[in-house]
Amino acid sequence: MNESPETIISDELRRCIGLKGPVRALETLSASDVRRYVDATGDANPLWLDDDFARSAGYRGRLLPPILVGWTPFSIKEPEGNASSFDVRRQLPVPAAYTNVRNAGSETEWLKPVHLGEPLACQSRIVDITAREGRMGVGIYVTQVEEVRNAEDELVFTRRHTVALFRERQAGE
């Protein structure tokens, strides 16, 4: 294996910095999605579950838990390299063995509360691609920015998110 941080990023991959996906409507999350979120996290905050409680706090109805805002298109498992995906990261021409994906970090801003059932649309773009060597070997670090807007075209959410792609080992390696 002669992979190194200096050679792993091809010119074709480097040219993808700046690649922007289309604006796509997000699947609207339901009360059932929120219930499954509560089951998974124990976060039974009445702001997510009780319209009357949320109204008493000044909102027009229950809110979407912040982590659920804008996340659907980026978490649904899609095949790597799916050219029709609207997550532009999955379209990148990374080396085929680099399927071990790790969450390296993110910076998120919620600009407005989002209510359950609100229609949202999202657009993402690739802003950086770098490589470095760590304890897991050479990693390709892809940073993308996602922006989510509501029906009034107001920006409600932005996220700058970095994933690290590592070479997947074969059994016995």
Binding site: P46, L47, F53, A54, S56, A57, G58, P66, R102, N103, A104, G105, S106, E107, T108, E109, W110, L111, P113
Partner: peptide, 13 residues
């Protein structure tokens, strides 16, 4: 609390 709001969050794993 119900009237507070998370505005920004940056995390490094």
């Amino acid at each position: 609390g119900p009237r507070g709001r998370l505005r920004k969050l940056g995390i490094r794993h």
